[in-house]
C-alpha cells in the first residue's frame, strides 16, 4: 500500500504541511497535521463535524487570517515558499490559490462581471470577453448563460451559481482550487454536474475538497485525508487532528486505523 501511495506521489507536491496547529484566540482548533498535497490530483478531506478539515483548508489560501485572533503554528509550504512567512503577501497567494465556498456566493453583479471581477482587480490585460467565455466553458456553464451574460449572477439556480463561482475562481488562472463542501447546498443533479466538472478540472488544477459526503469522496478524489476530533481537556471545544492519509481506495477499503474504519463504514460521524 505504502509503495503504491508513494508511486502516485512521484508527481510534484504543491503543499507540504508540517506539524500544523491552528488557534482561534487561545483555543486550539487543530493540532499537529502533517500531509502533502500532490499536483493535479483531487485530495479530499473527510471527517466528522468539528474535526478541523475546513480550518486546515482555509490555511492554504490564508483566509483564516480574515478571522480576528486566528493564528497557526508549524509550517505550510507552497512549492518552496513558506506560506506564513512575513515576506509572503496573502493577496498574491489568494490569486494563485482559488477557493469555492460551501454556499454559492456570487457577487450582486452581472454574470459577466462576476467572472471578470477577479481578472480586472489582478490587472489582466488580455481580451476580457475571451477570458469570460473560456472560464464559463471551463466551469461547464457557458451554454446555459451565453445569452444572458448581462443578467445578475443571483438570478441563476443554486447549482448554476456554484458553477459561476468556479468560473470566477478559474478566471484568475490559479494553480490550486480549494473547495469547502461545494455541494452541500445543492441538489443531487447539480452535485453530479460539479463532480463531473471536478474531474475535468483536475487536468489543469490541483484540487483540495472538504466534504461531508463519503460517497462524494470515493467518487471524485484520488487521495483522502481522514480527520477526527477529540474533546479538549481544558475547555469545552473540540480539537481536530489528522488520523490517516492515503489513496482514496485504501482509506475506504483497507484503512489502517480503527477510527477510520469505523467512520468510513458509517459507525459514527
Amino acid at each position: 500500500m505504502v509503495s503504491e501511495m508513494q508511486s502516485s506521489m512521484t508527481t510534484d507536491t504543491v503543499f507540504t504541511v508540517r506539524n500544523l496547529s491552528v488557534y482561534y484566540g487561545s483555543l486550539l482548533a487543530v493540532r499537529g497535521v502533517n500531509l502533502d498535497i500532490p499536483k493535479n490530483q483531487i485530495t479530499a478531506f473527510i471527517g466528522p463535524s468539528g474535526c478541523g478539515k475546513s480550518t486546515v483548508l482555509r490555511c492554504f489560501n490564508r483566509t483564516n487570517d480574515l478571522i480576528p485572533g486566528a493564528r497557526i503554528e508549524g509550517k505550510i509550504e507552497y512549492h518552496d515558499q513558506d506560506l506564513y512567512s512575513k515576506k509572503t503577501d496573502p493577496i498574491d497567494i489568494r490569486r494563485r490559490i482559488g477557493m469555492v465556498f460551501q454556499k454559492p456566493n456570487p457577487f450582486p453583479k452581472s454574470i459577466y462581471n462576476n467572472v471578470a471581477y477577479g481578472a480586472r482587480i489582478n490587472g489582466y490585460q488580455g481580451n476580457m470577453d475571451e477570458l469570460v467565455e473560456r472560464s464559463l466553458k471551463g466551469a461547464a456553464l457557458w451554454d446555459e448563460v451565453k445569452d444572458k451574460l448581462k443578467e445578475s449572477g443571483l438570478s441563476l439556480s443554486g447549482g448554476q451559481q456554484q458553477r459561476l463561482c468556479i468560473a470566477r475562481a478559474i478566471a484568475v488562472q490559479p494553480e490550486v482550487i480549494l473547495m469547502d463542501e461545494p455541494c452541500s447546498a445543492l441538489d443531487p443533479i447539480s452535485t453530479l454536474k460539479i463532480e463531473e466538472l471536478m474531474n475535468d478540472l483536475k487536468q489543469n488544477y490541483t484540487i483540495v475538497i472538504v466534504t461531508h459526503n463519503m460517497q462524494q469522496a470515493t467518487r471524485v478524489s484520488d487521495i483522502t485525508a481522514f480527520f477526527n476530533a477529540e474533546e479538549s481537556l481544558e475547555s469545552s471545544n473540540k480539537i481536530g487532528f489528522l488520523v490517516e492519509y492515503d489513496l482514496t481506495q485504501n482509506i475506504f477499503h483497507n484503512p489502517q486505523n480503527k477510527d477510520t474504519k469505523n467512520y468510513v463504514s458509517g459507525r459514527f460521524g
Partner: peptide, 27 residues
C-alpha cells in the same frame, strides 16, 4: 452585506479597498 461576499472577493486576491468599492458598496 453577507460575510460570504467579502470572503469570495478576498479569495480572488482582492485587497480590502477593492472589496469595499467593487463588492460591498454595490451590494
Amino acid at each position: 452585506v453577507p460575510r460570504s461576499l467579502r470572503d469570495g472577493s478576498y479569495a480572488l486576491g482582492a485587497t480590502k479597498r477593492e472589496t469595499i468599492i467593487s463588492v460591498i458598496l454595490p451590494a
